[in-house]
Nucleic acid binder design. Structure first.
Lengths: 339, 339
DNA sequence: CGAAATTTTGGGAGCGCTCCCAAGCCTAGA
DNA sequence: TCTAGGCTTGGGAGCGCTCCCAAAATTTCG
């Protein structure tokens, strides 16, 4: 069933049917109704490939998730992001093409994504420090949006949270409670969010005039296992509190602590990051930084759709607010307990 | 940059370039090399829309995840499934189009998925008893594969595990350990896997000539919160052991038990289902039924690709093996403890 | 060496749509 | 009544590719 067929059945021309299904106002009302009736009756659905070819756009967005550590994808972060993107796409009558890509793509893979002539734009999640895809995108002219800021190029559009400020606030909270010997389990330092959160940790210590102890900084990989391993190495160094750069890692840290028979927060306090669904249900419930992941996804999609509609406009940036969620994994602090 | 252009640059015709990029053997070797060189130099990438239109296929698979409970998508099940599908697609040079759909789609949405002329086939991670999309697919002639068996129509292809047998084995394990008063927290009964696992529970009891007590059967929804709520209601009924139809719910059950100061497995033993990554890291580590979710995804994709290549062939079915993973959430059993 | 068989290449047609321009229709005002 | 102007409509061209058939080039073999 194609345009021509529908045209024949409704006694009009191909062009008129095309106008009707594209909501062109230049159609007499009774003609429109007649065509619409046929469309409905035969269940006509325009061919996306043909449309894309003729019109030069497809209403399809690409979503690329560069995934080095495959275990990372188990983090609810990505499902949430995808849900946000997907719902915005549904809302705006767009579709999503998904690529889970190994970040050391070959050149060919990159071109396959950027020049397949099928997608109108790309959302790239999980920002690496130097992603060749992002570089290719920046040099090409396919609209794109990053989820997570770009460290250097200020001509790219993105939606992000202020990871540095949020981390700083989280650590400041620990300091305010009286904790002093505060360690951190960071994310991978080749990920922007990982680096930014460490930066925030440093800033918070500096705000109080505290020197930071390199022994109290351990690099994790945003996975549970990574958090567990880091916490085990951290334990002998006797931190009073740990700022863990993701809830998933905090879960691992919690497990290491439990195995070592350390009480949380009495022996070691913990602050996480993300406020993933499981954070509230952990034992003890995690104090953490909430970031609106699903909303970030939706906004990224909308931003991209807008960018596609108005090409050549300047880069857009949205910084979403975070919120420190106080739960039970840090308490009134050592100060209070001394009394 | 298009075919014609590449043809001009390599001094051959459009057709020859087309043959080269499609690996048609009917090209002289030196011609092939010359064209390939140009393709590489200019970074030519064929236009997918044009290709799809002309060839009638696109090497794109649709993936539909009907998502009633959006919280369900937080279960690592879906990321794992997507990973499996995605990696098989990468391997076979296919792409994925993703739809997270509300299961009470309108007719239009269904046609949009099945008749957009863009995808060569569909994978439905459907698990609902009566999914209108599946019905539409069965009536149409777009190749499709279900992840999870179809309850009635035996002409559809799917990949699944034997949920009933696996559940039966899990409960048999509890019985063997000496537990008798065994409850179950089921999945939603409008989901096939939910119903099948309950069925397996019943079968295991029956195998031992045990009547089942309706009071010990609580319906959950495959979410953590659902497991938690069910366990709370279950507690006063004093079960010795609980077969929980998903690890996510088991996590909730564990939380309810912890809050009620019940020890696992001493006071209540637990068996989960899925062997999600977090099951091994729960406190205590969960005895559970492992199912190869990622592999199921990969096999579904490969099955679909095969179905596309050989249309009109009979339905394919693959039942993947499950494995009971013994961990600490059930022990030698009350029998042992009495001595 | 020449004809037949085979390999290799070129070009037309067409996939289903959008976009554009021209033609047809209708209304209103002179 | 006639015409200018604004609605509507139709049809050609073309998006970039594949598929098919025929032509050209090459090889094979008597």
């Amino acid at each position: 069933m194609n345009l021509e067929e529908v045209a024949r059945l409704s006694g009009v021309s191909r062009s008129t049917v095309s106008r009707v299904i594209n909501n062109d106002p230049n159609v007499r009302e009774d003609t429109r109704q007649r065509v619409l009736e046929v469309v409905r009756r035969v269940g006509y659905q325009p061919n996306t490939a043909a449309r894309g070819l003729a019109a030069g756009h497809t209403r399809i967005l690409g979503l690329v998730i560069p995934m080095g550590v495959s275990a990372l994808f188990a983090d609810p972060y990505f499902p949430l992001l995808i849900q946000g993107i997907s719902s915005a796409c549904n809302m705006h009558d767009h579709s999503v093409m998904l690529w889970l890509a190994d970040p050391d793509y070959e050149r060919r893979t990159i071109r396959q994504i950027t020049h397949n002539g099928l997608i109108d734009g790309v959302i790239v999640a999980s920002m690496l420090m130097d992603d060749p895809l992002v570089q290719a995108l920046a040099e090409g002219d396919l609209p794109f949006v990053l989820v997570g800021r770009h460290p250097t190029d200020n001509r790219v559009s993105y939606v992000d949270v202020d990871n540095r400020a949020a981390a700083r606030e989280a650590v400041a909270h620990l300091l305010r409670l009286g904790y002093r010997r505060i360690a951190t389990i960071t994310g991978p330092q080749n990920m922007i969010a990982g680096a930014d959160r460490l930066d925030g940790y440093r800033a918070a210590l500096k705000d109080r005039g505290l020197a930071f102890d390199p022994d109290l900084i351990l690099e994790g990989d945003f996975t549970e296992a990574g958090g567990y391993a880091a916490m085990q190495r951290l334990l002998p160094r006797r931190p009073e509190a740990v700022f863990v750069a993701s809830d998933m890692m905090a879960l691992g840290a919690l497990r290491a602590l439990r195995e070592a028979a350390c009480r949380v927060p009495e022996d070691v306090a913990l602050v996480g990051f993300d406020d993933m669904p499981f954070a509230a249900r952990a034992d003890p419930p995690l104090t953490t930084v909430r970031q609106p992941v699903q909303r970030a996804g939706a906004i990224a999609a909308e931003m991209l759709i807008d960018l596609i509609k108005h090409p050549g406009q300047g880069p857009r940036r949205v910084i979403l607010p975070t919120e420190l969620i106080i739960r039970a994994s840090c308490d009134a602090g050592p100060k209070a307990r001394k009394h």
